[in-house]
Design a protein around this nucleic acid. Structure first.
Length: 219
DNA sequence: TGCCAGGCCGGGT
DNA sequence: ACCCGGCATGGC
């Protein structure tokens, strides 16, 4: 397993290069993006973030002055905009209440304790929590998404029905727990998943394995 | 035109 | 403990 995971990482990195995640100017923007990108293409999220920045609202204090409806309208391009407005609010209130809006304070909390706090917030599930912890907080935790599960499954490294925690454990128990590695690995899986892992007719069982090999050796 | 995108929640089995 | 429907815009 260790060798397989290392091999996949090296191939992806060699082929696709450094991904430079997270695409944001500061840690608060990372968190907003993490919530807005739930089941949504990043291009749509960018429009929503641009709206907020254009209004000078990319801070916990400023964002929290908006009503639910005002917030929803601004993030509309991100899709699920009413849901996501209702998911941003609890985080903003939590951040302001518990840490005076100061993310550095929040990220002083130990990984496990902070993860529990984030998961308690309405609208933050495991992937969003781990994205915040890794990409904004710099904690060594591996982010699992739909691509990650699909890719491991098609490589025969995990059951299709494997839980989030099972997939996460595969990476964390078989790789050095390094922030930079986890950062880059997840970003690479997303980048390649987009191109080679979509379900489609005629794609027998593991197009990724084949496509990956072909693509990597052909360029 | 239709399918899918860097999930999560609430209600039902 | 799972399974499912709902949530929505924008790109290919």
């Amino acid at each position: 397993m260790k060798r397989r995971l290392q091999w996949i990482y090296r191939q992806l990195h060699r082929h696709l290069g450094p991904q430079g995640w997270w695409p944001a100017e500061d840690t608060f923007e990372v968190i907003v993006g993490a919530i807005l990108t739930q089941n949504t293409a990043w291009a749509n999220v960018e429009k929503a973030i641009a709206n907020l920045k254009a209004q000078g609202l990319m801070s916990p204090e400023a964002l929290n002055t908006l009503s639910l409806n005002e917030l929803a309208e601004l993030i509309r391009p991100a899709g699920y905009y009413r849901v996501k407005a209702a998911r941003l609010k609890p985080f903003l209130e939590y951040l302001l209440r518990e840490y005076q809006g100061n993310l550095e304070k929040m990220f002083k909390k130990p990984l496990g304790a902070l993860r529990k706090e984030l998961l308690n917030l309405h609208g933050i599930g495991e992937e969003t929590a781990d994205s915040i912890l890794l990409y904004a907080g710099g904690y060594p935790i591996f982010v699992v998404d739909a691509y990650t599960r699909r890719i491991l499954h098609r490589h025969g490294l995990a059951r299709e029905s494997a839980t989030y925690q099972e997939i996460q454990a595969i990476f964390m128990e078989n790789l050095p727990k390094k922030v930079d590695l986890f950062n880059e690995y997840h970003a690479l899986l997303v980048a390649t998943g987009k191109h080679f892992c979509r379900k489609r007719p005629g794609c027998e069982v593991c197009p990724l394995k084949k496509d990956l090999g072909q693509t990597l050796t052909s360029s």
